[in-house]
Design a protein around this nucleic acid. Structure first.
Lengths: 200, 200, 200, 200
DNA sequence: TATGAATGAGATTTCATTCAT
DNA sequence: AATGAATGAAATCTCATTCAT
C-alpha cells in the first residue's frame, strides 16, 4: 500500500471513530457533519471526500462494528469452544456477544437501534462491496453442517427465531434490567434455546 | 362537555391524525411542524397550544396507536375467543395483532420503530396520566390467573420472552418477507409458543 | 366611586405592579404581555382593556414611579427642610432622592433607563392627561421664587445643568461604584452644586 | 495579509455598516439579522460567521463608533490645539466632539443610548482585546500630567463629573433643543467647566 | 487533496393581537 | 367586562452542501 493510500485509510478511520463517539454520546440526529470533521481533525469539506453524507457514514459504522463483534466471538470459539456440541457452540457465541454488549452499552444501543442483527441475517443486503462484512447466518449454517447437523427448512426458521429472540430480549434486559437482570435471564434463555433447538 | 372543549378535542385529533399520516409517509424527521399544522387545517402556532414539540406529538401517537390495536384485539377475543384454553387465548390475541399489522405496514413500521411493544411491557412507564393507555402484560397475567394458571416468576419470563419474540420476528417477516412469508411462519411460531408455554 | 370602578382601578394597579416587577427583573423586551397578565391574575385579552400595548404600560409606569419618588421627597422636605436656604433645599431634595434610588437599584435602573428625569424637566410632554404627574422643574422654580431668588435665564440653565449632572453621575456611581463610592461622592457633588449655584 | 483575510475584513465591515444604518434609522429592536445581511449583500447565515447575535454586532459598533469619534478629536487637537492650556485643551476636545455629534444626530442617539461614554470612562471593561478601543479618561489624565497638572483624587472626580455633565446635557440639548439651543448652551457650559476645573 | 467561507433553505418557536363566546 | 383559543407574521439560528482557492 502506498503512503498516500495509508493516509487516506487513516483519515477515513478517524472520521469513523469520531462519528461513532458522537453518535453514541449525543445521538445520531444531534451530531453534525461539522462536529464529526472537527473531532477527526479535518476540515468540513474533507468529510465529503470520504462519505456521501451522514447516513453513509452511519451505515459504514454499522457494518464495521457488527462485523467486529462477530469476528471476535468467532475467534474466541475457535480458541476454546471447538469441541462443544452444535447447540452449545451456538450458545457459546451468543453468550460471548451478550457479554460484549453488556459491557459496552453504547455499542449495544448503536448496533441494536441500527438494525444490526439483520446484518447477520439478511445476507449481503447492506454489505455489498464491503470487505469487512460477515454473515452470521451463513456461518452458523456452515458450522452446523460441518458438525453433521442437517440444516432443514425448519432448522433455518429455528435459527432465525433464536437470533431474533436473543436480539430483542437482550436489548430489553441489558438496557432496562427488566423484567429481570441479565444474570438471571441468561440461564432461562439458554435453556429455551436448547428447547427450541431440540424440538425439530 | 362544553362546546369549546369538544372543539379542542377535535383539533387535537386532527393534529394527531395529520402527524400520523406524515410520519408514516414521509418519515418522522422529514415531517415539519408546519406541514402537520397545515394538513390539520390550523395555524402553525396552534400546534404549540396542543403539543410541546414534535417528540411530544409522536409519543402521544405511539400511546394512542398501540392502545388502539390492543383494545381491538381484546374486543375481538371477548367476542369469539372466550372459551379457548389459556395458551390459545394468547395465540388468538397475537394472531389478531399480527393480522392488523400485516394489513397496515405503515402502522407496523411506526409502532415497531417507536418502542411500541415496550409500552405493553413496561407497565406505565410511558402512559402516566394517559387515559388511553393499556398494559398488555398486566392484562395477560390477569387473564391467565382468571383461567387458573398460576403466574410464577418463570411464567412471567416466558410471557416476556414470547412477546419479544413475536415483536421482532414479525417485524422482520412482515416487512421483509424473510426468511419466510408470514403465512409460512405463523404455524411455526404458534407451535413454538405452545412449546415454550408448556415447558414450565 | 362605584364598586365597578374600584374593581377596574384595582385591576389596572395589579397590571402595573406585575409589569414593573417583570420589567425590573427580566427586562422590558423579554417581558411578554402574557406574563404580565398571568402575574396580575387576569387573562391575556384583559390586558388590552386597560393598556394599548407594552409601551403604553411602560410609559404609565414611568410617570407613576417618578411622581411617587418626587412626591415623597417633597413630603420629607415639607416636614423637616422648610427653614433651609434655597440651595440647601435643593440639596435636601437631591439627597433624599439619591438615597431612595440607592436603596432600590431596580427602581433606579428602571427610572433612569426610561428617560425619567426628563419627565421632571420636559414639562408635560409625557403626562398629558395623567393626574399623577408632577413637574420637578416647575416646582423648583416656584420654590426658589417663593424664597425670593429671582429665576433668571441663567438660573434656569443652572438648574437644568444641575439636574442632569445629578442624574448621570448618580447613575454611574450607584450602579458601578465607579470611580468612587456614593458616600465619597456625595460631599463632592453637593459642594459643586453650591459652587454652580453661587456662580451666577 | 492574505486575500481571504482581506475579504473577511471587508465583509465584517459591510455588516457593521449596514447594521449601523439600520439601527440608527429603524431602531435596534426593529432591525432584523436578515435585514442586516441583505443590506450588506451577504446571506443570512454568513452573519453568524462574523457575529454571535444582534447584541454582539451592536457592542462591536459601539466600540468602533466611540473610538472613531475620540480618535478624530485627538487628531484635531494634535493639529491645532497643542499650545493651549490644560483646561482649554479639554474644552477643545469637548467642543470638537459636541460638534461631531450635533452634526450627526443618529450617531449621537446611537452612541448615547448605548452606554458609549462609559466606554471612555470604564477603562477597558468593554474593550478587552479590541484593537480599536480608546480610553478617554486615561488620555485626559496623561495629557494633564504632561502639562504639569497633578492629577489628585479630587481632580479625577472633577474629570468624571465634567464628562458626565457634558454627556447628559448635550444629549438633551442637541436632541430636544431644550431648555436652550446648543449655541446658547455651549458658552454657559464651557464657563462652568472652567469653574469646576479651577475650583480644586 | 484539502480547506473553510459562503450559502440559503428550512426548522422551530414566540408572542402581540384579534375575536367569538 | 372578561376570557383564552387561534392566528400567523416574524425572528433567530442551524447545518448540509458547494466551490473557489
Amino acid at each position: 500500500m502506498k503512503r498516500s493510500e495509508e493516509k487516506k485509510k487513516q483519515k477515513r478511520n478517524a472520521l469513523l471513530k469520531s462519528a461513532y463517539e458522537l453518535f453514541t454520546t449525543i445521538g445520531y440526529h444531534k451530531t453534525t457533519i461539522m462536529a464529526i470533521a472537527l473531532k477527526a481533525g479535518v476540515a468540513k469539506g474533507t468529510f465529503y471526500l470520504y462519505f456521501k453524507d451522514k447516513e453513509d457514514i452511519r451505515d459504514a459504522l454499522i457494518v464495521a462494528k457488527s462485523s467486529q463483534i462477530l469476528r471476535s466471538a468467532l475467534d474466541a470459539m475457535n480458541q476454546s469452544g471447538q469441541s462443544l456440541p452444535p447447540v452449545e457452540k451456538l450458545i457459546f457465541l451468543v453468550d460471548y456477544i451478550i457479554d460484549v454488549l453488556a459491557r459496552d452499552i453504547a455499542l449495544l444501543r448503536f448496533v441494536s437501534k441500527n438494525l444490526s442483527w439483520s446484518l447477520f441475517i439478511n445476507s449481503g443486503r447492506y454489505h455489498q462491496s464491503d470487505e469487512d462484512a460477515l454473515d452470521f447466518r451463513a456461518f452458523l449454517v456452515e458450522m452446523l453442517e460441518t458438525d453433521g447437523v442437517p440444516v432443514t427448512r425448519e432448522m433455518e426458521l429455528t435459527i432465525f427465531t433464536i437470533i431474533e429472540l436473543i436480539n430483542s430480549t437482550c436489548y430489553s434486559v441489558i438496557l432496562n434490567g427488566e423484567p429481570v437482570t441479565l444474570s438471571e435471564y441468561k440461564p432461562f434463555l439458554y435453556d429455551r434455546i436448547r428447547l427450541l433447538f431440540a424440538h425439530q
